[in-house]
């Protein structure tokens, strides 16, 4: 230690704080419990609105940047790499490969799920990208028809998939209009 005599001790030595057990906290006098009210109506805007409408029709739409040729899924009205407007809409076949996949045993609030769900990133077949490159067009979604063994063994990664659409009458212009992505047979 290079410390001089009389120098105060470092700030980690006696960290202050009053720890509470769960019950102790709930029995504290003056504890305030408050249910918040924070509701919104998000403007999806030009790009996402058209994308959602496309989902309703069973289409996966993207926008193409006129300068670099990247096709964006989900679409944006601008190219984030060229900072220019993207005007041209492209319909993608919807097929692609699994980039990564995991098995979730818990829900949003960390509650255990009855049935695990498999989710992952789907790298979509889209023009404008180098194969195997760092960037790609893709979506985050559920995967079905993929088994936990496929995920754990690594077989799932690289598997070719396509969207499984909900029946047209159930589609609402929502990301859930795609039920999941499922492996392409054969």
């Amino acid at each position: 230690m290079s410390s001089r005599s009389g120098r105060p001790q470092p700030g980690w030595v006696n960290p202050p704080g009053h720890y509470l057990k769960r019950d102790e906290m709930y029995s504290l006098v003056g504890l305030v419990e408050y249910p918040p009210r924070a509701k919104y109506l998000f403007s999806a805007g030009q790009a996402q609105s058209r994308f959602l409408m496309g989902l309703k029709e069973g289409k996966i739409l993207g926008t193409r940047c006129p300068r670099c040729g990247r096709v964006y899924v989900p679409p944006r009205m601008y190219c984030e790499y060229c900072h220019t407007h993207t005007l041209e809409w492209v319909e993608l076949p919807g097929t692609g490969v699994i980039h990564t996949a995991v098995i979730s045993y818990i829900g949003t609030f960390r509650e255990r799920r009855k049935e695990p769900v498999i989710v992952g990133v789907i790298q979509l077949d889209a023009p404008g990208y180098t194969p195997g490159g760092y960037e790609f067009a893709g979506l985050f979604h559920r995967l079905c028809g993929v088994t936990p063994e496929d995920v754990m063994s690594g077989r799932a990664i690289g598997m070719r998939v396509k969207p499984r659409w909900r029946p047209p009458e159930e589609r609402r212009g929502d990301i859930n209009d795609i039920e999941c992505f499922e492996p392409i047979e054969g």
Binding site: G30, V32, Y34, P36, R37, A38, K39, Y40, L41, S43
Partner: peptide, 16 residues
């Protein structure tokens, strides 16, 4: 885009 503006402002007030 905010539906409950009063609720949001409420969160800015001292909770105690």
């Amino acid at each position: 885009d905010i539906v409950t503006l009063d609720g949001i402002y409420d969160l800015a007030l001292d909770p105690h």
